[in-house]
Simulated assay, not measured.
Amino acid sequence: MNSYKELIRNAFKAVVENPTYDPTTIEKYFSRDYRQHVDGEELDFDNFCKHMKAQKLAIKYSLIDFQTMVEEGNIIFTNHAVKIQTNEDRHALIHVIAEFRVNDGKITYCNELTRLVSGDERERDLGSRR
C-alpha cells in the first residue's frame, strides 16, 4: 500500500461499491476494533457489517466519487459523493464528509456526516441503515 488514501479508495471499491456482501473482504480492510460515528449513530465492527449487509440488500449499485482526499499521518479526510440505484430503481446522490484513521494497515475509525442531495427520502438513512 503506497498511502492511506489508496487504502481508503481500495476499501470503498471492494466493500462499498461491490454489490456482494463479503465479511472476509470487510475484515481485510477494517479492524475488528473499528468504530464508526455517522449522523448521530455509533457502529462497532459487528454493526458495521450489519450495515453493509443491509446496504447490499437495498442497493443495486453504488459509485463513489472522491472529490477531495487529504492525508495527514494516519488520518484521512474525504469529501465524496455516492451515487446509488436501489433495487427498486430509485436513484440518489449522497454527499459525505468523513474522517478515517488507520492503524496497523486497517481502518479503525470513521466519523462522517452524510447528506441526501437528491433522491427519495427513503434513502436518507443509507449511511447508518442496519
Rank of each mutant, 00 (worst) to 15 (best):
P19L: 09
N103H: 12
L93G: 11
F77H: 09
D39W: 03
H91D: 08
R129T: 04
D120G: 04
H51I: 13
D89E: 08
A92C: 06
Y34W: 10
I26A: 05
A81H: 03
D39I: 07
F100M: 06
D46C: 09
M1S: 04
K60W: 15
E99N: 01
S118F: 09
I75G: 12
T108Q: 06
F45A: 07
D104N: 11
E17A: 01
N79W: 05
Y21P: 00
R35L: 15
Y61S: 12
R9F: 07
E112L: 15
R122T: 08
F45E: 07
D22G: 02
I84S: 01
K13F: 07
D125Q: 14
T25G: 02
R124G: 00
P19S: 09
P23N: 01
C49G: 03
R124I: 05
D39Q: 08
K53M: 09
V16N: 06
H51M: 14
E99L: 09
S31T: 05
E27S: 06
D33R: 11
G119E: 06
T25D: 02
Y109W: 02
E42M: 15
V82T: 04
F45C: 02
N87R: 08
S3W: 02
R32K: 15
E88Y: 08
T20N: 03
R122P: 04
D120L: 04
S3D: 01
N18M: 10
L116W: 01
R130Q: 15
E112K: 11
N103C: 11
A11D: 04
H51N: 12
D33G: 08
Y29S: 03
D33P: 04
G119V: 07
N111S: 02
M1N: 10
D89V: 02
S118T: 13
P19N: 05
A92K: 00
E42I: 15
H51F: 14
T24F: 14
M52K: 03
T78S: 07
Y34V: 13
D120T: 01
A11Q: 00
S118I: 13
E88W: 07
F66E: 06
T68I: 07
E6L: 13
E41L: 10
K60N: 12
Q85H: 10
D46S: 11
H80V: 00
D65M: 11
T78V: 03
I64V: 08
E121R: 08
T20V: 06
N87E: 13
F77I: 08
G119M: 09
Y4H: 06
V82R: 06
A14R: 00
E72C: 13
A58L: 15
G105Y: 04
D125R: 10
I8M: 04
L57P: 04
Y21H: 00
V70H: 03
N103G: 12
L113M: 09
D89K: 03
E6C: 04
I8F: 02
K60Q: 12
V96D: 00
T24V: 12
Q36L: 14
